[in-house]
Computed example of a mutant assay.
Amino acid sequence: MKTAVITGASSGIGEACARLLAGGGWKVFLVARRRERLENIASEINGHAIVVDVTKAQEIDVGPVTRCDLLVNCAGGALGLDAVGQANADDWTNMFNTNVLGTLRMIQLLLPRLVESQGCIMNITSTAALAGYEGGGGYCAAKSAQRALTQSLRLEMKGVPVRITEVLPGMVNTPEFALNRLRGDAERARAVYENVDRPLAANDIAQVVVGVANLPAHVNVDEIVVRPVAQRAQHALFRGDLRWRDKQSSLHSSIVKGEYQ
């Protein structure tokens, strides 16, 4: 049985990855800070909870992981939409700590096991790593740094049979992401996705992660950008009816509109 370690596994993309991998027969270790929520998810999928802040993780925390075939670094997030001139430096510090240093720490802790298993590292960055946008300076900078870390690691491990992939999601409707970024303002969080016809869901990204993880061991996908059809670029988002012909369109729209209710 192959073993995966998923950070940020208590919600969003991390939770979706954990559930999909477990359903596919993987042994899954779920890593996050929120004990009750994490342990409940782990219990539901017959996984193993590691309750720790990834920015403070130590060898003792990953001790139960005797083998690691896949590390998926999902822990991260954004704080605020302030312009650079008015940005809160503490928010930037928190974003760098979680998105960049948390990824670094988990890779350093598990790299020997990944080398031993000839495994795969997948870092979930963002299309925010590809271009800046107004109000996104801190998040774009953090995700750009995480992207640079991934690219450097891939080159440094030339000659080592470990796959290293970066997944760059565009607009994904994960309720907690927008709520955290907007300090719990549900109205503003809902407006982020308003009239967007079928933004990505966490499970869409999880399917990409699992698909890459299950490729032959010699096949490395360096990076993969995943956006909804409604989003052609970071600055090019279409709001309106895309006139999908399948029945899932109305169902998906209803789910999106009800997620914050």
Rank of each mutant, 00 (worst) to 15 (best):
I6D: 07
G12P: 02
I13C: 00
G14T: 06
C17T: 01
R19H: 13
L21H: 12
A22W: 02
G24D: 10
G24K: 11
G25E: 09
L30C: 13
V31P: 10
R35P: 07
E36N: 11
I41N: 02
V51Y: 13
Q58A: 06
D61N: 15
V62R: 01
G63P: 09
V65C: 07
T66D: 03
C68V: 09
V72R: 08
N73G: 03
G80R: 00
D91E: 04
D91G: 09
N97Y: 11
N99M: 05
V100K: 03
M106P: 10
Q108S: 02
P112T: 11
R113L: 05
E116V: 07
S117R: 12
A145P: 03
R147C: 06
T150V: 11
P161H: 15
I164R: 08
E166C: 06
V172E: 05
A191W: 00
Y193K: 02
N195F: 13
L200S: 04
A201S: 13
N203T: 15
N203W: 14
N203F: 14
Q207T: 05
Q207P: 02
V209F: 15
A213R: 14
V221H: 12
E223T: 05
I224M: 04
R227K: 03
R227P: 01
A230I: 08
A230S: 12
G240M: 06
D241T: 01
D241Y: 12
D241C: 06
R245D: 09
L251E: 10
L251T: 03
H252R: 10
S253R: 12
S253A: 12
K257Q: 00
G258I: 08
E259Y: 08
